[in-house]
Design a protein around this nucleic acid. Sequence first.
DNA 1: GCCGTTTTCGGCCCGACTGTTTTCAGTCG
Length: 567
Amino acid sequence: MSNQDLAQMFLDIADILEIKGVQWEPRAYRKAALTISTLAVDISDIYRQGKLMELEGVGPSISKSIEEYIKTGKMSKYEKLKKEYPIDFTGFRKIQGLGPKRAYALYKELKIRNVDDLKAALEKNKIRGLEGFGEKSEEQLKHNLESFMKVREERKMLGYAIDYFEDIVGRMRKSELFEDVEIAGSARRMKETVGDLDILATSKRPKEGMEFFTKLKDINEIIVKGDTKTSVKLSIGLNCDLRIVDGKCFGAAMQYFTGNKDHNVKLRKIAIGKGLKLNEYGLFRGDKSIASHTEKEVYNALGMDLIEPELRENTGEIEAAQKRSLPVIIGYDQVISDLHTHTLDSDGANSLEEMIAGAQRLGHKYIAVTNHSKSLRIANGLDEARFSSFNKKIEKINESSGIKVLKGVELEILKDGSLDLPAKVLREMDFAIGALHQNTKMPRKELTDRLLKAIQSGLINAVAHPTGRKIGEREAFDLDFQKIFEACKSNDVSLEIDGYPERSDLPFDLVKEAKSYGVRFSLASDAHRTDQLRFIRMATAIARRGWLEKKYVINSLDYRQFLKLKR
DNA sequence: GCCGTTTTCGGCCCGACTGTTTTCAGTCG
């Protein structure tokens, strides 16, 4: 049982109620599902503390359902509805363009209950011709089935999983059964999505260590269990491998199990070229190990500088390390601000004061509060008057607060490239981020020109989540990024690196490309609630994966220097 | 079903887009 499972059940309930034509309950269940799925802690912990009702969107009825589910593993409301509508809504939700109503229509007409049934029906072209479906719907379903299933099913977003991972590792460290416990694999490389968790440890009592590990509460199922390697299924639905290695070769093992594969293949080739052999136990000349204790030793012995885990993608980092020309990438502690956040004045869940306190807890020196502008009505965007009074509130707070607050806006770039607020209002802002949210399915040239017009306006400081992609949900905009990068450079407009897990936008490869144009970057959590402020770490990870030195990241400027950027 | 300095009852984001309609339903954000 996990937060995600519970959230999916509530979403199923919402879907079924919607099919039944129930008016408002679906919305309530969806809201509760959203709250639960973005929780940083296990829902059963909240239940034990008796604090279920304090969760946003959880009232008497839903909290009873949660309690029932935690206690019995079942939820009667869910079971009853599911019996009436035996449809795999959870699976269908992953397919774009297939909502509850159409899923029900497919079930009613063709007895399609799950994704496999759908696949079969699509192959036989059975769906075109159904009422409400035509040839195009069928083609679209085929396409979306292909392109969105995989990533959703097999990988998790690291931004959500990392605290859970570190909690597991933390409890292992506390047990004192291990000398070292570290995360390896793609999680260590801080990849946006991860397919499993690799943990590496050293221990004088490996049997007890393995025993302790398999009894952790997060482990649902043991796949294999041995003295040096154990594989389990975690409660969040990912596999996890724990390897216990000899302390003497911990560095070599970390190197080996951190990857990625291509990076390691190239290192092994280099080793062979030097008459050496590299494996998880060390770098060997004949039978003699010449480096294995630390990763640094291994890299140095191969004739190169240590390469940070975030860079290990075999995209030129090895060559740069050999030439001793790797960039000194920005450190997690050098990002001293968050430049894109929301409060409940637009679509956030916490007050300005709460968000400021949250940012202060993370050690930020300043924070830009960037609520939506008026045209994004879905997000309760602010108009001139509301911004004016909101900004006065910020000025008041800045008189006394230790942490500084920037007057910001996530500003709609309208269909014709004009901006959603007048220049006069924007000049009063400290930080304006232009954003595309609506009418984004334009032809490449039109959409590019629209964004260029905003960049050249002289009124925005940055471009929010530039590609607009959402991992596993929505593809990136069709934009001519070379033109965008050039314009950003010549107009001194930053590109945002949005650390909100689904966004992770700009993606690291584009960051690297943009850097070559001399563009600067603004890092942000895009937090809509205080516990999402932690996503700044994911933004920093992307900056590092994109080879950014400190000087490219405007969040590293101190408050005074930052204000000089003001347009 | 949840929520509350407009409310403990009566509201609950609503407009754009798409494909299927021949005036609209479903989905999305």
